[in-house]
């Protein structure tokens, strides 16, 4: 799974549903989580958290424009590409971290992704898990 360090900027609750705005390097992220009372670390705005998401949940865009509902966008540069028969794994340099995306080989070929290229990694807000930073 991808693991980035972030900081909680704001928490909005509606019943059990929690929307967390998180600052992660120079990117603003939104995460939707179900928050029960025991997850006290969500309460403190300003507290540091781990932002977790699975590689297979990371979509990629190139020359990205237009409107899209995905709010979580990481602008980075492709560091390496590994192509297999059905899958492709793309490692993206994002500041001091790397973000890994596993997409279909077909999409990777169709987008003609190359090492060194700029891409946008996209993650849906409900695919992000938050973990107490320790």
């Amino acid at each position: 799974m991808n693991r980035l360090k972030g900081k909680i900027l704001a928490i909005q609750r509606s019943g059990e549903l929690v929307r967390a705005d998180i600052e992660c390097a120079d990117t603003m992220l939104t995460a939707f989580v179900m928050g029960s009372a025991q997850e006290g670390f969500l309460e403190k705005e300003g507290s540091e958290v781990w932002v977790l998401f699975k590689e297979s949940e990371v979509a990629l865009a190139k020359d990205f424009s237009g409107q899209i509902s995905l709010r979580n966008r990481f602008e980075g540069r492709i560091e390496s590409i590994e192509r297999a028969e059905l899958l492709a794994q793309i490692v993206i340099r994002y500041g001091e971290d790397t973000i890994i995306s596993i997409i279909s080989r077909r999409a990777c070929d169709a987008m003609e992704l190359k090492t060194g290229e700029s891409v946008t990694a996209l993650v849906k807000a409900n695919e992000i898990t938050l973990m107490e930073y320790s």
């Binding site: 989580v33 179900m34 029960s36 997850e39 969500l42 977790l52 898990t129 938050l130 973990m131 107490e132």
Partner: peptide, 12 residues
């Protein structure tokens, strides 16, 4: 869960 779950994750 306090003892065996080392990491506290905000998921269900």
């Amino acid at each position: 869960s306090e003892l065996f779950v080392k990491e506290r994750i905000g998921s269900s």
